[in-house]
Design a protein around this nucleic acid. Structure first.
Lengths: 207, 207
DNA sequence: GGACAAGTGGACTAGGTGGTCCACTCCTAG
DNA sequence: CTAGGAGTGGACCACCTAGTCCACTTGTCC
């Protein structure tokens, strides 16, 4: 029997574990997974070493919990907007929300994208978790596009999957360029182009 | 007079400095700027601490030299292909080269993009250097699109700058998705969509 | 109230980190 | 040949890191 990280068995333990993940998520967002220390996390969480190692096997395990948390947050936040995505107007509304958020928060980049870039070639488990997060996130859009196609809002030749991939690449790339240059316009240009591309698959209108 | 990193004054010194940057570039590519230690770099370079601190003020200064090196490499490598960019065929050729490279190298992501993602919010100088690199890189494409527009290969309404930004977002995003999922197809989907979007600005043909 | 497990505090360790320092070699100019 | 600065080797330091360990508290069940 190998000693593995333990799930908390009491309400008190559950809250301690949550506090640690929360503080770790903040620290990772600010300094990256490799750049933040457990001591910093624990001080912010008001917890001790023994608590950390009571709930997590090691630092990588904690980082994985942070990833799961971030993936969950992202899907919880955008899921409602995306799961009912059903028209060009819905897509435009989503894009405009992304652009507004990015500008409002000062071009922080994508939490998932940032983690992916740091961890993809250093922690295989983290990479798979993040790839899964991207995949689920993208699937909302792909399914929305498929619904639009079924309803005749997209021509037959459109490939919802490839279009969804392209939309996400534009989003991630736009966020990275904005973050690097601190110029929000890059994301706008990226998503505007992506939207125009999607529109080109609208069936010829009666106008 | 503040003591600052010194440029080597002899050929021998220049070669030492080069060796250190080369080893540092490799280490940074493999483990990230924050994840590689000076001891590792120096061992790989066959150099000593005193050499490092003879040529660089501190670790950040070395990282900045690595960034300058990578920016230079990227522009040197793609510059020839991009500075004469003049037609849709040239763009397609560039895209295909990017896709092929990405697949051949096992989806390593963009060296500049990876550094940008790690350093953008941790080292302001590095951020500005990387933003400048992106900017120069992008300007090749924007100027190419402007040439195409001047020659009538792009309609008047096309905005070369915004199109260039969108192309780069697709590239960076596609590289990140490929790196995270280890699936080269994401970059292909991203660039195919970007290319189709560009093509939509071709003037109506005689066909 | 006592037994027992979950949860906690925090001192401690072993190894690594960036950075300093100084004695030394190498090279060149005169 | 010699002087002096550029270049080099590597011991050394203070600090920080992830991770260990054990005595202790808290809460619950009988």
């Amino acid at each position: 029997m190998v000693a593995v990280a333990q799930e908390p068995l009491t309400e008190r333990g559950r809250r301690s574990r949550e506090r640690i993940i929360e503080a770790a998520a903040a620290a990772v967002a600010e300094r990256g997974a490799g750049g933040c220390s457990l001591d910093q996390v624990l001080e912010a969480a008001g917890a001790s070493k023994s608590q950390l190692y009571h709930y997590f096997a090691d630092k990588d395990d904690l980082v994985r919990a942070v990833i799961a948390r971030r993936v969950g947050e992202t899907l919880d936040c955008q899921g409602p907007m995306l799961s009912e995505l059903d028209s060009f107007a819905d897509i435009r509304r989503w894009f405009d929300w992304l652009i507004a958020q990015n500008e409002k928060l000062g071009c922080p980049g994508c939490p998932l994208g940032t983690l992916a870039n740091e961890l993809a070639d250093r922690d295989e488990t983290a990479r798979v978790d993040l790839a899964g997060g991207f995949d689920t996130w993208m699937s909302y859009v792909i399914e929305g596009l498929a619904r639009m196609q079924a309803r005749g809002e997209l021509v037959e030749q459109a490939d919802p999957q490839r279009l969804g991939h392209a939309v996400f690449a534009s989003l991630q790339g736009g966020l990275l360029l904005s973050k690097t240059t601190k110029v929000p316009q890059y994301l706008r240009d990226a998503l505007d182009a992506s939207y125009a591309h999607l529109l080109s698959f609208a069936p010829p209108g009666p106008s």
